[in-house]
Amino acid sequence: MSDSLPATPHSIISDHPVDRTMLDRTVLQPSLDVQGTTMGGETVLLDLSTGRYYTLNQLGSVIWEHCTGHSTISDIHAVLCDRFDVAPERALDDLVALVNHLIQEGLLQQERR
């Protein structure tokens, strides 16, 4: 008999970089100890577990606002391309770079659907 836990539909991935082949199956959400507030288009993030705080510029804030556990990375990419004057390739490169940075800092968690 196995002691394994029952399978869940979603699985949280640790602090690995984003898998670019799974962008349409990867959702993002803030880590438990992170509080964020957006003011004047910019966002301040406070990591209560480390005492560090971070600021996001306008584009970073738009991305952060979609990291609620509902939108996939592909969804967020589509929002950026629809709203901003940017080449899709550049938007994706910048999005993945920012998300990887936020994951590395422990501010974001990624979850596979």
Partner: peptide, 17 residues
């Protein structure tokens, strides 16, 4: 009519003390 898009700037996060 073509939709007017906002200016794009690279998304940035800055870590503070």
């Amino acid at each position: 009519m073509e939709q007017k898009k906002e200016q794009y700037v690279q998304p940035v996060v800055v870590k503070h003390e």
